[in-house]
Nucleic acid binder design. Sequence first.
DNA 1: TTATGACCAAATGACCAAAATAGTCATTTT
DNA 2: AAAATGACTATTTTGGTCATTTGGTCATAA
Lengths: 194, 194
Amino acid sequence: MVMTMAVDRKEKVIRAAEKTFASFGYKATTMDLVARLADVGKGTIYTFFTNKEELFYEIMNQFIQRIKKIATNAIHDEDSFFVNLHRALYSMLELRKEHQLTIKLTQEFREVGTAQAEKALADIEDAILGFMEEFISKAAAKGELKACDPKVTAFVILRLYISLVFDWEMHHSPLSSQEIADLFELYLVHGLKK
Amino acid sequence: MVMTMAVDRKEKVIRAAEKTFASFGYKATTMDLVARLADVGKGTIYTFFTNKEELFYEIMNQFIQRIKKIATNAIHDEDSFFVNLHRALYSMLELRKEHQLTIKLTQEFREVGTAQAEKALADIEDAILGFMEEFISKAAAKGELKACDPKVTAFVILRLYISLVFDWEMHHSPLSSQEIADLFELYLVHGLKK
DNA sequence: TTATGACCAAATGACCAAAATAGTCATTTT
DNA sequence: AAAATGACTATTTTGGTCATTTGGTCATAA
């Protein structure tokens, strides 16, 4: 029962911290506010986490787990490798795109260059790359695509998707999931050669 | 003869300004230093350019002309569309990569977020995109590649190249021109499908 | 007529007092 | 006894100031 209380408090701290990080970013979030929002003493936070950074990375880790789960759920055995890859990637990027904390961190990194924000964003990218690499390796072993370096391939495909999902929107009207799937099909599945 | 003198001075100003912009960036370059380096009075600069910004864009325009020339020279009629596209793109990005002023502007935009630096870099990208778009349109008309939107295609290919030439190096050992050509061939020309 | 640099209003950034903050630990609560 | 707390402190950040620097002008010189 005592244990349950402690876990409850830890959860409350994490949720409160997630909210404040998402609102103000890493730099501008104060431990005082987190404590007040979680309705615990400031000292209590430091019984769960050694410092602000560790609390922050706990939240990011939880988010990365969520991303991995979503990607895994997007894989349906009855579909082809390429359909599955598109669905997994698209759902991961949609999650990332809508995730308030990630949005805030992107903004904070661009504006202030906070190192923690940069590392957190790199960690998310690495998680996505890791998932893709494994998925590509498996498919390559099964002969579902040409021989290729899974690392470079994952990197190239992710870049293509990020370009289409995020960068394209900056100067043009956004592309739908179907349009992106079609472009993926055209450029990377079949190639441009007639 | 009088005209020649004026052009000479203008050229001297441009060369001096290019040097200082490349050393200190847009923000930290003073018109006083440019004038001293060009060995003209400060007022003289303002007989050629209405302000610092215009002088800067004159320099950037000259660089964009150079890029276009290099790309045009990379096109050899005896080679295929894809070989030509790779050579043109690779030489443009190599020029961009080694160009001191562009390097400085990239750094300045990342660190200080100077608006002029951002605009100049966007202008370079637009020039490259414009060239590619035209080249792709022509090839599409000749039936050398599948039907595709030249704008999106140029955008996607440029992104792929930038990823491979610049971004990949940030976490891995750099790829040679031949390796990039091979990857371009694999991913975008023939596609990943077996 | 053309080039110049002394000059000026505006922008900048060095400086510093005041405020805010991460993390600690003696005290209180359970 | 164990867990929670918030007052406290060393350090960082902020906001405001003012001397210095800078882009741009224009009366003078060549």
